[in-house]
Design a protein around this nucleic acid. Structure first.
Lengths: 349, 349
DNA sequence: AATCGTAACTTAATCGGTTACTATAACAAA
DNA sequence: TTTGTTATAGTAACCGATTAAGTTACGATT
């Protein structure tokens, strides 16, 4: 492709017989330049079809006005919602977003962080992959003094800020509801224990169980990934053991869907034979039969909080104080996790 | 924030007592530089923690190695899937993606295109908003000789390439299936006629109907947006008219979901009282009761084809030839749009 | 009248690379 | 010996902005 040369500040300057600095300042509304000159410059810029060159601007000003984002997935209700919020919040603050997708692959994640550093992003928002264990690359980010905010899925690295969901509290709330509805045999199909959301949701489950003096059967706690397939496998493991619980707390919405799929395959009816609750949701939940009762993660708040927090850090001139923002969850009642054993043969559905 | 100064080529050069050009070339594996020097340079770069400065690189090389993308939505199965494919395909070709989200807002869309031009993206992939009618900004892109590929939702602009789905053919296929299953009273809740996907799916419907000599009732064709709410409203309009069809072809999956919601609200049973088919799907379709039979849009192919096409255009040295790639659809049978009126009281489901 | 302040610009340097030439040495070919 | 190649590296200019540090003119101040 042969490109037409782009219009530059100098082109405008030449046309008006002023210096390019004058043009630069005028376009940025700098008070040095008189009203008339400014409007003249703007007029000519428009006529010539001037488009600023961000590379040049970033290079000389040493900032990109961009926030780098690394997420493990996009085609997933939780992340796509959060990302939409991030874009919107950044847009409202006149910041650009450089989004990258790690595909749950730690190596890609590392590459992306390097790319974003090369772009000299002003700050970074990261949600780590399922498999991320090494924090070296993030230490490198910190050593460059680039504000780093972990979102939802965090790695314990000193000096980083975090925006998370109250995983423990939300999980406990889910279990409390199940118990108050009469369930005792409660299983948990959870995520990896090495990552905060897996660990904390599991702990919330454990705490609530203990609080009510309920035993935690080792084979009723299954740890794995956060996807549909993990839910499917988890259910099958429980099912094949022949030792079925009456209730399952699923670590994510996709995991719950996997449970639905597996259950329907082997003829286990939800919620009659087995009841379920889960952490997170999706827009289509209302079309699910039965619709899942769930612990809602306010994706919009999460995204906005993450952006606000990096921006805050970017604004701080000195070493910034790491901060931990925790977003509260809300229990949303739908068709599952309902009262167990209503008056026999008189259940008013 | 006070940032540490970044390591530059000159820092490495000084350390090794060579010129920065040598370093630059070495790092890029230029044959000018000997094996030993190259590996020495790379070693020192590593030790010093060198991170290239993309702004500087882009500025002097006059290319960004980035493809700009503008989509109307993210938190939507179709787009999030396409975007994931776009990211992946770009990654495999060593290109970066600059993603922007217009939120179905033409004004934002325009701003985003301007930003991407300012970033000097090497090419552009755009899926327009529902409301985009003005092509001025896109003409501007073309006048700069920046390859522009419209994806899925296209605007008729000379000189642009397109990657679309065979909307007309897919729609016709859906109608054919309905007719072959015995339906005659077929309605269409469609999108805006001003935009290709709305227009072509509508035309596919019309053609198939005409081909089979079936009348098209004016009040059985409803044009609107592509969201859930549009489906809900569309159904309600049909319902309130008292003149109900026996079958609806929905222009998108969300529209079909809206129909489901409205139908269940007023007690119309799907597929018994009213049967439905739609264009597009979502990963959760299998959990829907009844699961929708649909015209599948191969999102992965779409995304990859779009990237491949821009890259092809970017690679062309001369004026490029606009190209139109059409991705084929696949009819996927699920629980709806099944044979009507099977042998009475003997329907083998 | 000398000094000052300020509005409105301009000059020069710089950001961190890349590109297009140029230079040098070593060795081969003639 | 002369000329030609080739491998390897260096020089200088430039990409298109921004920033810091001057200028200039002119009315105000004392």
């Amino acid at each position: 492709m042969n490109r037409k040369p782009h219009v530059t500040l100098s082109d405008i300057a030449r046309q008006l017989n002023v210096s390019k600095v004058t043009v630069s300042k005028a376009l940025r509304g700098h008070p040095d330049i008189s009203r008339e000159t400014t409007s003249l410059v703007k007029k000519v810029a428009e006529e010539l079809g001037y488009t600023p060159n961000f590379a040049a601007r970033n290079l000389s000003s040493r900032k990109s006005n961009t926030i780098g984002v690394v997420v493990p997935k996009i085609a997933h209700f939780f992340f796509s919602s959060v990302i939409e919020a991030i874009y919107d919040e950044a847009f409202n603050n006149n910041y650009d977003i450089a989004l990258t997708v790690s595909q749950e692959n730690a190596e890609r994640e590392k590459k992306h962080v390097e790319t974003l550093m090369a772009m000299r992003v002003d700050g970074l928002i990261v949600s780590i992959t399922q498999e991320t264990r090494d924090s070296a690359i993030f230490e490198k980010v910190l050593s460059r003094n680039i504000p780093l905010v972990f979102m939802d899925r965090v790695l314990p690295v000193d000096g980083t800020s975090q925006v998370t969901v109250d995983d423990k509290g939300g999980a406990a709330q889910a279990i409390e509801l199940a118990i108050s509805n009469g369930y005792r045999k409660i299983a948990h199909i959870g995520g990896y224990k090495e990552i905060n959301i897996g660990k904390n949701r599991y702990e919330g489950y454990v705490e609530a169980m203990k609080k009510h003096g309920l035993p935690i059967e080792p084979d009723w706690v299954i740890h794995g990934g956060f996807g549909e397939d993990d839910g499917y496998q988890g259910f099958m493991k429980l099912y094949k053991s022949g030792h079925m619980p009456e209730f399952i707390f699923a670590v994510t919405y996709p995991v719950a869907l996997g449970i639905y799929a597996a259950a329907s395959e082997v003829g286990v009816r939800i919620p009659d034979d087995l009841d379920v609750i889960c952490f997170g949701s999706a827009s289509i939940n209302k079309f699910l039969k039965p619709a899942l009762t769930y612990i809602d993660q306010p994706t919009d708040n999460l995204g906005r909080a993450a952006v606000d927090l990096v921006l805050e850090h970017i604004g701080e001139t000195e070493e910034y104080e790491p901060k931990h923002v925790e977003v509260q969850t809300v229990l949303v009642m739908r068709d599952t996790c309902i009262k167990k054993k209503a008056a026999p043969a008189a259940a008013v559905k």
